[in-house]
Design a protein around this nucleic acid. Sequence first.
DNA 1: CGTTAGCACTCCGGCCATGAGAGTGCTAAC
DNA 2: GTTAGCACTCTCATGGCCGGAGTGCTAACG
Lengths: 354, 354
Amino acid sequence: MARRTERPAGPLDPRSQQILRAIIEEYVVTAEPVGSQWLVDRYGLGVSSATVRNVMAELEEAGYLSHPHTSAGRVPTDAGYRLYIESIAPQMSLAPVERLMIRHQFGQVEFASEQWFRLAAATIAGTTHAAGLATPAKPRSCKLRHIDLVATSTHTASLVVVLAEGGVKQELVALEEGYDQAELDDVARLLNEQLADKSARQVGNRIAALGTDPDAPPFAVRVTLRVEKMMREFDASTVEDVFSDGLLNVMSEPEFSQSEKLRRVFAALQNRDYLGSLVARLATAGDVQVLIGAENERAEMHDVSLVLATYGQPGRALGVVGVLGPTRMAYPHAIGTVRFVSGLMNELVEQMYR
Amino acid sequence: MARRTERPAGPLDPRSQQILRAIIEEYVVTAEPVGSQWLVDRYGLGVSSATVRNVMAELEEAGYLSHPHTSAGRVPTDAGYRLYIESIAPQMSLAPVERLMIRHQFGQVEFASEQWFRLAAATIAGTTHAAGLATPAKPRSCKLRHIDLVATSTHTASLVVVLAEGGVKQELVALEEGYDQAELDDVARLLNEQLADKSARQVGNRIAALGTDPDAPPFAVRVTLRVEKMMREFDASTVEDVFSDGLLNVMSEPEFSQSEKLRRVFAALQNRDYLGSLVARLATAGDVQVLIGAENERAEMHDVSLVLATYGQPGRALGVVGVLGPTRMAYPHAIGTVRFVSGLMNELVEQMYR
DNA sequence: CGTTAGCACTCCGGCCATGAGAGTGCTAAC
DNA sequence: GTTAGCACTCTCATGGCCGGAGTGCTAACG
């Protein structure tokens, strides 16, 4: 039978929008399907429940709502949320009080830079009541600043590599021959002279020369190889580390009380490649990005949504902050929070790198 | 009415032990209360179910078993588990196959030392199907090896502190006056000359002298203060970091499928002070320590058990590895695993520090 | 005296029927 | 286009019922 709207076609008329919005905002807080009567009682739409039902039926036909079963109320679909955040949702800037609180928290923290990412994740988790994610801003490529060799035993040493961007990496190296600290210092001095300010590639190029250098013990070559490898790995990774906080918030949502689904999500998050691919995708997009339910490629993530934004300078160093929550999520607030925090992180990065 | 055994009194007779053991080992795998009939069928005790019931009643009176309700089988109490691991449990060494597998995993890992703790936690989680915990071995007190100042912008620099024990810390410092890299290098060189090989306390002592040194800019004093603070904090903490893996394993146990309890546990684990206090307690005890259910002081931990061991050298550097799981846990296996892994970590530390 | 068979009793868990409640979709009237 | 009315459907909570599992007790047995 012919409906008024044959296909989703054009934009929705205002009343449909209003109703969709009401349903979503109601469902987000109650997690219960919402019915027509309930809606007219609670929201002051000047129409009867029957009319609302008609509209709901249209919205369902258009794919924005669905039905758990015949006599249940309506529930938004992924497409419904999508439409909501694209064209219906209210302003998404954060309330001044919340801004203030967040700024305050950031003011408290010491200058230990790693803390920032923990804090960003924790803050986001706290204000959105979902899980917060944050990665450090990773420079696109690094240069060597300084290396240090510290003997920890007769046959092992700790190799510390300080990068020009302010980052540090540390590994152990085995010493086949016994070296004492003085000898290690000599090697370190030699390598620092030769390798300071070089990129991974340039470090690699020096290896051959070092091999023939009479001053350089064979051990120096092995260390250089390790340094090159560390630097290459650093350059290659899109995401260095992921801090997350408040995964437990999500766990306690009613739709996840039976937890098998969530286990999958947790597992997927452990995997850095996945977040790496997201970062790559985000780098091109400007503002906050939202991935709703099945919009995530990964099947594990079909029941959750991500709200992500990058911070830093596109060509130089990029990091990500974001929210992971149930698809039934307070998107405007989450988006506002992520936008604000990413802005804050931007300022911090700016302060750091000029 | 007078029972045969008025009080728990002496050790249990062999048959009671055998029955307690059977109940525990059965319950550990099934998570269901164990009944008398079931027991005689499955285990070849040469007695009737009635006799078993009598014994069970005694064991219950003695506090080793309990009853969810009248017509249910028996369930071990914390005291039951305790008795079991103290005097009844079978040999607790790990099967050679498992040892081999674990050794193999450790063989695979690169020398990046942080990886070890992740790996230890992951390995323990994997072989016990519970959560694995591991902290890095933290030296009791540290000495400064080297500091490095890297300009990241006109008004901030990254301060890298390398400790003689091979550890590294990094923080940002604000520069009120504009410094360029060359000036920072000068300051770093000056400080390295003055502070190398000093303890936190000694660094503190130099601060006054630096303040009057004409070569040292005021900025150098501020940096030194920061260095001292970092070193003091490092010395003061008992636990630097905690790696955990496989918390999800625990989550999927039947007793935790309704997850509120587990949230509490997770939250308690986040808190380093708690683990710190455990480490302090462990440091005195020699072997593997087991904390069963309510034996943990924290109320949140009353439904889980911990199996923990230290590794490293008591006077010098101590870390912890362990298992967190439901009280209904395969203790002998868990204990064997923890003992083996802590031994392995011991070897690694030994290799590192002499 | 310890062990055992027998038995009554208790309690849980699953099953089914029931009924209230919520919400829909449709139709006909406004 | 909107609304009232109504039949229909489906869920969910309730309560009764029954079978099964397991106990505790008692009395008999060796």
